[in-house]
Amino acid sequence: MADVTLVEAVNMALAHEMAANEDVVVLGEDIATNGGVFRATVGLKDRFGFKRVMDTPLAENLIAGTAVGMATQGLRPVAEFQFMGFIYAGMEQIISHAARMRNRTRGRLSCPVVFRAPFGGGIHAPEHHSESTEALFAHIPGLRVVIPSSPKRAYGLLLASIRNNDPVVFLEPKRLYRAVTQSVEDDGEALPLDTCFTLREGSDVTLISWGASIAETLEAADALAEQGVSAEVIDVATISPLDRETLLCSVAKTGRCVIVHEACRNVGVGAEIAASIAEAAFLDLQAPVVRVTGYDTIMPYARNEMAYLPQVADIVEAVEQVIAL
């Protein structure tokens, strides 16, 4: 077992699956010789060759569409977008083809592509390198949207995503890429998709989050524990399709819920979760569901990005608010 960072766990999962299944190929900008700008694909070219580890021209629409074409031939492409901010040129291929190929052909063709992209703020990068627009993908029927928040989940969920026979948008919180290490066994064991992970059990309030905000959410849970408040922490992990069952069971137990996400608030995934809880667990609630989110603004550039991101104190304050009710 090795102590690895989240980005190293991504690399481990890619290498494992490429060794196990020769239909797995990876493509993207600067991923072969350079090993990716975040080093997620380091070493793959040397091990598996240029034929399966492809540096593409600079063209995201092409990357997405080429992956779709390969998938119709039974390959399992893992396409890297250098940053989520540059995936948009590939949206037509992802939305209009990847998500629909199975439905369109009544199951004759499918699209087992993984579209990987680093996302989120907090690394002081230039414009377009810090946003969290996962809701755009969650809105599209036929797409899975998976977000790991630890090295272990990065490894297990990426394996599951590659093995899944449908397209997965796999979003990697780059603020966590090197934030912590965890011992991860390279045993090829996938983790389940479409399932939330309960990271900590609690009885007073349910804290729901995903991606990088899991770090602040866990910290807030620690702070709350010191105040005698027992918080359950759930990592949604697959934000679409949503495992409502786990969320509703937790809220039935705690009666209170705070949703935390870095993305802006308006029509965010938090809104879907809150609506689901209002629809199905209204009578369990002892206080309104509260969201702690980014603002409905353009993500500020580096100098002010920390003012945009939800902080531990914001989460604690929100919990205090729902507990007081």
């Binding site: 608030r265 409905d296 603004t297 353009i298 500020p300 003012a307």
Partner: peptide, 27 residues
């Protein structure tokens, strides 16, 4: 010095829509 955090609202639209006033004040 950096802009005040509320600057993120200043040029989002020509004028701040009423719907965002609450967020602005919270910030």
């Amino acid at each position: 010095g950096p802009q005040p955090p509320t600057a993120m609202f200043d040029h989002l639209f020509e004028t701040l829509p009423a719907a965002l006033a609450g967020q602005y004040e919270r910030l």
